[in-house]
Simulated assay, not measured.
Amino acid sequence: MSIDKNLVAEMTKWRHTLHACPEMAFEEVSTARLVATVMRANGITVQEGVGRTGVVGTLTRGDGPKIGLRADMDALPLLEKNAFAHKSQHDGKMHACGHDGHTAMLLGAAVALSQNKEWQGTINFIFQPAEEAAGGGRAMVEDGLFERFPCDMVFGLHNWPGLPLGRFAINHGPMMASFDTFEIQIQGQGGHAAMPEKSIDSLVCASHLVLALQTIVSRRLPPQETAVVSVTQIHGGEAWNVLPDNAIIRGTVRCFSMVTQRRIHELLVELSEGTAKTHGATATVAYNYAYPATINTAAETDIAILAATATVGEDKVNWDCVPSMASEDFAFMLNAKPGAYIWMGVDRDTSVPLHNPHYDFNDDALAIGAAYWVELVRTTMRGSAA
């Protein structure tokens, strides 16, 4: 189904409005208001405040499948460096991940489906807050999302720089990695930098530990287990001539299974305590299981492939893509319900990466994304259509 040009123009206006007024995690008040207002104007039942600032719109037409369609709404703490008219008006906040486009596309699909008679069942339009490392997906699930708005299956979509406009990519199984964080406290004994033999050097210990952590993936995990362990912060010391008492190491872990997550946690503790003991220091590890891996279920992936194929053609859908080591809190919804997460191409000739201060969602993708959502509903509910 093609999207009416007048609706595409409306989606573009919504997208530009959202881009100019980005809101951070759990602050999406004006974004939620726009979403709720448009849906109510089109006869869609709306519930606000789900998972704090989330919005769910529901359309029911007779008996049939119950599905959830999800878009994320939040922006990033980033200073935009674009100069176009719809650039961010909120300094230090920016839609650098395309969530403005995601919201506009699902909102456009909701309007189109409210006027379309070629389906029968229940559609829950899930507008999620706080995807960017704040766990808005978890907040909605814990707020009773699927008890209050029953879904047999749930679907997500993300724009994907590096994939040409008019193409989709999906995988049966893992799409995005888990996201965990860790903090290691190294406790040594401070002293004079000119007399290190009278101290326990926490910085030397921390330096050895950073290198030791790189052996977790290369030497302690089976090569078939994909994982990333990255140290992203080292803190310690304030003076030129003082060996600090303690040092802090922080970082992130990415992988595709809970078994691997738990094994990496164990190895972090083992290596930290062992390395510290070697240097006469002690180590304490705090490990945070943040986002699970985003793993598609087979039957729902097939539905998404059919919908994408109906939207852009079979030759423009890759259904065996390489998973990303980035993370997505849509995983919390997939942990609760079967479903599928797909990437949509947005590139013309060049690509600006996500989370970049020059990123801007490609408006030419709006009609494609909205059409995909409509086709997904028609594919899922075609057998029930009156």
Rank of each mutant, 00 (worst) to 15 (best):
E131G: 13
E132R: 09
A134F: 14
A134P: 01
G135D: 08
G135M: 03
G136M: 07
G137S: 10
M140H: 07
V141A: 13
V141M: 06
V141L: 10
E142K: 02
E142Y: 04
G144D: 12
L145I: 10
F146C: 00
E147R: 08
E147W: 03
E147Q: 14
E147L: 11
F149A: 04
P150F: 01
P150D: 05
P150Q: 01
M153C: 08
M153D: 10
G156F: 02
L157R: 00
L157H: 02
N159R: 07
N159E: 07
W160V: 10
W160K: 14
P161K: 11
G162V: 07
G162T: 09
G162Y: 09
G162L: 10
L163M: 07
L163T: 11
P164C: 12
L165K: 12
G166S: 05
A169H: 11
I170S: 00
I170T: 14
I170W: 00
H172C: 11
H172R: 12
H172E: 15
G173V: 09
P174K: 12
M175H: 03
M175K: 02
M175A: 14
M176Q: 05
M176A: 05
A177V: 01
D180S: 09
D180P: 06
T181A: 10
T181H: 10
F182P: 03
E183M: 08
E183W: 02
I184G: 06
I184V: 15
Q185T: 13
Q185S: 14
Q185Y: 14
Q185D: 14
Q187L: 13
G188Q: 01
Q189R: 15
G190W: 06
G191K: 09
H192E: 04
H192M: 11
H192V: 05
M195K: 13
P196Y: 06
P196T: 07
P196R: 07
E197T: 14
K198D: 04
K198R: 13
S199K: 08
I200L: 13
D201P: 04
S202Y: 04
V204F: 01
A206I: 05
H208Q: 13
H208P: 02
H208N: 13
H208G: 09
L209M: 09
V210L: 06
A212S: 14
L213N: 02
L213P: 00
Q214R: 11
T215S: 15
S218Q: 06
R219K: 12
R220E: 15
L221F: 09
L221N: 08
P222V: 15
Q224N: 10
Q224M: 14
E225V: 14
E225H: 12
T226Q: 15
A227Q: 10
A227Y: 08
V228F: 08
V229G: 01
S230H: 11
S230Q: 13
V231M: 11
V231A: 08
V231P: 00
